[in-house]
Simulated assay, not measured.
Amino acid sequence: MSKTKIIYIKLCLSAFFWGGSAIAGKILLKEMSPLSVTFMRFFWATIILFFVCKFNMKTMRISLTLKEHLALFLMGFVGISLCYCFYFQGLNISSAFNASLMEATIPLCTLFISVAIKKETFTKNTLSGALIAYLGVFIIITKLNLHIIYTLNFNIGDIFLLISTLCFGIYNVLYRNIAPDIPSIAQTFYIFLYGTIGIIPWILYYMYSANYRINTHNFSIISVCCVIFLSLGSSVLAYLFFNQGIQVLGASKASIFINYVPIITILLSIIILSYIPAITQIIGSIVVLTGVYISQRNSIHQQETISEYSQK
């Protein structure tokens, strides 16, 4: 099998790992609290990346200055601690279907933040596409129900998911501007490490409250597999495979596979979780994906933004 074919298979696996992360998370949330799922995912991912970095220590710089450590701590706190605590809290209350569509807007959220701080400007495609995509989000969270719109009685889970995308958008901007010049594997290790550390105070706070639970008595082999899937698959292998795809094919071609992630999540949600989407969710998903496609078409800046999405 040629090297190019192997890379395409790896990119497909990356999309599958990211697409399946919401499904694995939804299954885990039946037995663990959102904080526990977040901690377990990134704790084990950090351990795996530690050994990967140690194996490659001779060929990479992993010693950092205090300023670089602080930059990585900030990125880890925003991009892991905050982002994923809100994400799994939202996923616990909302659906994997909705989570996948909120995630699809991350490049657009990143673009809005970049424009706000005058790092980028809107093009006709990106602005029109973004407006269309967020119209789809509006359809999903309101269900086109006038009572919900009038009373602002939204599903809090969907709001948490939106906050999660905002956190990751901020993380992307931080990554562009303050990430230390070290190998990407080492960057990810430190970001995961500090992100995991940032979750610990929240866990300690909720340790004795009803909001914190790990039902070890009912912890099944399926749950163990889900933790492995999230930590090894969605957090480590997907990232490594995607970066290999960028190196061989370039960012533009590799980034195309990111567009399949919400579609994979939706299909797995229907197949594995037996989730039946409402008509407004179907309409909203079509509008969101159309808007994302329009905003990304022929946009170099967006291709760069999508590449950063790989760590999601």
Rank of each mutant, 00 (worst) to 15 (best):
L108H: 05
L267M: 14
N153Q: 13
H69K: 00
P277A: 11
S114E: 14
F88V: 02
L267N: 02
N177A: 06
I283R: 02
L204K: 04
F219T: 05
T196R: 03
T216S: 07
I258C: 10
G291N: 09
I140F: 06
I199W: 10
L166P: 02
Y260G: 02
Y190C: 02
M60H: 05
S307M: 14
K30H: 15
S94M: 00
N125H: 12
G169T: 01
S63H: 10
L70Y: 05
V52M: 08
C167N: 09
M32G: 02
G90E: 00
I6M: 13
K312C: 15
Y171V: 02
I80P: 08
S307D: 04
K118T: 03
L273H: 05
G233Q: 07
L232A: 12
A254Q: 06
M57W: 10
E304W: 09
N218I: 04
Y8M: 02
N215H: 04
A186G: 14
N145T: 01
Y87N: 07
I23Y: 11
E103I: 13
N259E: 08
L162T: 10
I148G: 01
I203D: 00
S269W: 03
V52E: 03
N218H: 12
A130M: 15
V292L: 11
L108A: 03
W44G: 01
S128C: 11
Y293K: 09
H217D: 15
Y212A: 06
L267H: 08
S14I: 05
I214A: 10
S2T: 12
L161K: 10
G169P: 04
L111P: 04
T110W: 01
F242G: 02
F88W: 09
N92A: 11
F97D: 09
I228T: 08
W44L: 12
G129S: 12
C109Y: 00
A254E: 11
M40A: 10
C167I: 03
I200G: 07
G76P: 02
T265L: 05
